[in-house]
């Protein structure tokens, strides 16, 4: 495919946020989406870590795309991602120790997060650094939005707080189940259903 037929950096960025949202549209990288969304703070930290790794991997892959060999490209992608994840993991353990303890194994699990390897394959290995960086920023913004949407619902209903601040009245009966694993499944399923309600509504209007 020639580079001119691929989306421009601007389009890449916009696409990542909503039209090709990695979580709600492409259903990629769902482990952290469900696992670290019990509190908004951990969701934000996780999104930031993913953004750094995605940006780093996309830029590096885009820089070396001319020398990639087809059958070895996945290995190179994985190596790059694992390198960046180790760096982020160590940096976080050094400067944000409590958060790195809370995220636990989910930080190293970014290595096998499908979003990053998918973006390397779809965008960075075909386009220049500008487009790759814009794509990484757009996708991580979309990822952050999705994580924050789920996390705020879970934290608000489960603990009555947002980012640790009390939001709900003190009499709020905390829905502990929302913080527990089932709450993650329920919240994600219901949010997706909500999105498709909106979409169905729009399509219906267009037909009428």
């Amino acid at each position: 495919m020639s580079e001119s037929s691929l989306p421009t950096p601007g389009e890449r960025f916009v696409n990542g946020v909503l039209p090709e949202n990695p979580v709600f549209r492409q259903l990629l990288g769902l482990c952290p989406v469900l696992a670290v969304t019990a509190t908004l703070a951990s969701a934000l930290t996780m999104s930031f870590a993913v953004a750094v790794v995605l940006l780093g991997a996309n830029v590096v892959v885009s820089l070396i795309r001319g020398w990639l060999r087809p059958h070895l490209r996945i290995v190179v992608f994985t190596l790059t991602i694992a390198g960046f994840v180790t760096l982020v993991d160590k940096t976080m353990a050094a400067f944000l120790y409590p958060m790195s303890k809370e995220l636990g194994p989910y930080l190293p699990l970014i290595i096998v997060n499908c979003i990053i390897i998918c973006r390397c394959e779809v965008c960075a290995s075909k386009q220049g650094v500008g487009a790759a960086a814009a794509d990484a920023l757009g996708q991580s913004l979309g990822f952050t939005l999705a994580l924050c949407a789920i996390a705020s619902v879970r934290e608000l209903l489960g603990a009555g707080t947002l980012l640790g601040f009390q939001v709900m009245p003190a009499a709020w009966p905390e829905w502990v189940v929302m913080i527990l694993p089932p709450g993650a499944f329920f919240t994600f399923g219901l949010l997706m259903a909500l999105l498709s309600v909106i979409q169905l509504h729009r399509e219906h209007r267009r037909v009428v």
Binding site: I64, R69, V75, V76, L79, G83, L87
Partner: peptide, 15 residues
């Protein structure tokens, strides 16, 4: 495999 070796070397150094 040159690229693989080069990437490996680069990340080894960084780490």
């Amino acid at each position: 495999s040159g690229l693989l070796l080069a990437t490996g070397f680069f990340f080894g150094l960084t780490l």
